[in-house]
């Protein structure tokens, strides 16, 4: 059953309601769920139990890779074809430093951009919640919460009644793939 259901969606009318609902869903032990709101609701990521993004580590890895790549480039070229320029040493920490740090910045930026794509599962041209015909309202005046079927606690009837108990209405199961396609 859960194979053809992506998840269960419920609609709420106000941001305090969705805030409380997100808190309750997280408290009930669900981990794979998401909230859709027409505008940013501050602090909701905390009550949803979202951890801090690991994007920073991608930046760090990119930056360190850039630093050592720069070092390797200069070292390889200067030792492979030794040429004294301006009385400077063949390889040192000062004269080629711009190359080290420019590459640090460049690859750190690439790491951040690439990491963002990886963490967001991009590129993604379609999302199962689009199958829900009223989903457009979540970018207008409605607040929605989706509990995914992949969640270990997921049970179609239990989860539905749980969402209803929280005050959600239009509780609907979203199919994984549209059969009409």
């Amino acid at each position: 059953m859960s194979k053809d259901t992506y998840g269960i969606i419920a609609t709420f009318d106000t941001s305090p309601e969705i805030y409380k609902a997100a808190k309750e869903v997280n408290k009930a032990g669900y981990s794979k769920f998401d909230v859709f709101t027409p505008f940013p609701v501050h602090g909701i990521e905390k009550v949803m139990g979202e951890k801090r993004s690991t994007l920073g580590s991608f930046t760090m890895i990119g930056g360190l890779a850039g630093f050592f790549t720069g070092m390797a480039i200069v070292a390889y070229m200067n030792f492979d074809y030794p040429l004294i320029v301006g009385g400077k040493v063949i390889f040192g920490p000062i004269f080629p430093f711009p190359i080290f740090y420019e590459l640090t910045i460049l690859l750190a930026a690439f790491g951040t951009l690439g990491g963002m794509f990886v963490l967001n599962n991009l590129p993604k041209h379609h999302h199962p919640v689009f199958e829900y015909e009223n989903f457009g309202a979540s970018s207008d005046d409605k607040f929605m919460i989706v509990i995914e079927s992949e969640d270990p606690k997921f049970d179609e009837s239990d989860t539905s009644s749980f969402l209803e108990k929280l005050g959600g209405y239009d509780v609907t199961a979203i199919p994984h793939k549209s059969e009409t396609k």
Partner: peptide, 12 residues
């Protein structure tokens, strides 16, 4: 700080 030192070092 590095830029100041670097330019002076480089120009020598």
């Amino acid at each position: 700080c590095f830029s100041q030192m670097f330019l002076i070092y480089q120009a020598n």
